[in-house]
Design a protein around this nucleic acid. Structure first.
Lengths: 203, 203, 203, 203
DNA sequence: GATGAATGAGCATTCATTCAT
DNA sequence: GATGAATGAATGCTCATTCAT
């Protein structure tokens, strides 16, 4: 039997729900947000939401999956435009430097993301999800650094695995500190960027 | 007539409840943990728990207060034993270097702490609590760096506020990454320590 | 899309709940009656009850509001049919004279009403509610007496405010005494009616 | 074995508890008042209260028993001082006329009393208690009227039973109306007194 | 497919009562 | 006798999920 509504329509509904859910979660946190609220915010009835997602958890999961997927695509796409390893790393720092981490919406989503990460910590299945994401991100940097070493762009003495982690710890650390209203985000991140680039540069 | 039980006894009960609560929260998260579970875990009846704490939130809060207080005392006490600013900073890195961040109990508590931090983000009152804690920690480093600059131990050109934040971002970042099972905690933290100390050293 | 159920349906549900609640309250009193009992009595689940009423208090309030509203409408409607002030007052006495105050259901509701009245005594907000009701009733009689005075039907020397209160104190007093099983309700009320009418009559 | 403390002491404790309980009940109502509050108010520990009363209900009951008993004694004592039936009735009206029914403490106790009366309505055992009290009061007036009839002081044509009830309905009605802040208590009660006395007088 | 009414398990919290000291 | 810590049954209320229309 042919579907009654187009795939496109379904996708649009899902997105609408997910967007609303993200905003609600960002504002109030996952467990405090009710399906009713997501419904009210999206203008979609509670019953309909269950036509698209099997559970509240499912919404959360899909949200994170997509975020991760988007990140992956974004980064990969942008990396492919850049030639040198060095400029790729630099570019990634710049992405975060051009963000306003104190803007409420972004701050909210930041919190949701970390909360979810911690939540995953407690379930084997979810831990895999978040580990996959982590591995992808770490490997992205690691491989970039390795390619850079191969072409003599990157300091051959550095442990690429360690430096890949160092890269993300800086970004995580900096994101985390933004909960303090007077955290000098740009200054700190710029300095960390300079330092990092200096360390990986082939001397 | 004298109180029926000693203050000591009461303190012991509170501690018992708090310890159980911490373990439960670490295992399941704050909102998922029920008072019944804390009761079962501690062997103390639900009703009794309410004789010692006003609410579930109150337990959480007291837990964090104590953790913060202990941290403050520990750090302050140890700092007072050390002469140079440089060695104080070095010492603090070492504290974290001698910890096993993958040990389940510690990992669980780590998660609880961060979750609570994010939770605080959503309430003005709680945000103050966590901001106070943050300010204390940042100022501790900032003041240490400033004293070091006065006596010519620390590079006079660094912005102490920025470097205080840098210090904690490193530790936050490193703690966060420990959710990945193959994160090379010691290697990364050691390198970050060296780098940090190198930067603040008077040349 | 049209609402899933008609307003009528919703109203019917509300009434069903309210009727059950009234019977339960009458039987056991407000605070002793549980939401579960109202649910069991009405055959409506606890959760559903909360779809129609915000809280147990809300049920109580709505119950009283409706009772008051009905009283107001009933009295006003009947008053408009009657020409003379004298006959209006007489009619109101007769309404109570044709009631069986010992009939269990009525007796129960009577108790609920008085209990609620006393309960209101303890909250500023609720006191207003009950005061409004009281004022309406007193003013109704007062105005009726005044109109009667204008047309020379009612004794011009009586203080209408005082006599309005006297009217209701008789009815309250008589209602209250019905808790005694051998209280000669009709005899007493008839006599009081006669006396009252005699006093207000223009001589 | 001889009692460890004197009966006097015990009685003093009971009274202390009862007084506190009455004030608490008057302020917050029976069910809302907790044993802890009575304890705090009286300065007697929860545990001790249970040495004197078997339950919270027991306190309530004893409170009402004593109130009734006191009323009985008071009225009987005062009646015995008065010769004529007429002056006895008049005296009783005056007792209420010299009271300030709006004084918070009295108003509160008034409410407690009525609440308890209604509460009794729901238990056979308690209903007896309150019926006994009612009967005593009604009979007191009835017998007074009858004696007055015998000596030609009181109108021989009135139904003493009905008039006894009429007496108390006036007082109940007037007490009830005091919940309205602008109820003209003295005016109304004076008029009712006059009217009542006029009716029972031998003409 | 859409809707929102119905459901009931689940939770935090309260409080009369007991009882060891 | 006095005390107040311990207990746990009981309650109002929430909310994810189901399902009849």
């Amino acid at each position: 039997m042919a579907p009654i509504v187009s795939e496109e329509y379904k996708e649009k509904m899902k997105s609408k729900i997910l967007n609303s859910a993200l905003e609600c979660f960002a504002q109030k946190g996952f467990s405090t947000t009710t399906i009713n609220e997501i419904g009210a915010h999206s203008g979609i009835s509670k019953g309909s939401i269950y036509n698209y997602f099997v559970s509240k958890d499912d919404i959360y999961l899909e949200l994170l999956n997509r975020a991760t997927e988007n990140d992956k695509i974004d980064i990969t796409k942008n990396f492919s435009k850049l030639r040198s390893s060095y400029s790729k790393i630099s570019f990634l720092f710049d992405v975060f430097l051009t963000l306003d981490p104190f803007e409420p919406k972004r701050a909210g989503q930041n919190v949701v993301f970390y909360e979810f990460t911690f939540h995953c910590t407690r379930s084997k299945r979810l831990l895999e999800l978040i580990t996959d994401r982590g591995n992808f991100l770490v490997n992205l940097i690691k491989e970039t650094l390795e390619k850079g070493q191969e072409v003599g762009e990157i300091n051959p003495n550095i442990d690429t695995q360690v430096y890949a982690h160092k890269f993300w710890l800086i970004l995580d650390g900096v994101s985390l500190q933004t909960i303090y209203k007077d955290f000098p985000y740009y200054d700190v991140l710029s300095e960390m960027k300079e330092m990092y680039l200096e360390e990986i540069k082939h001397k």
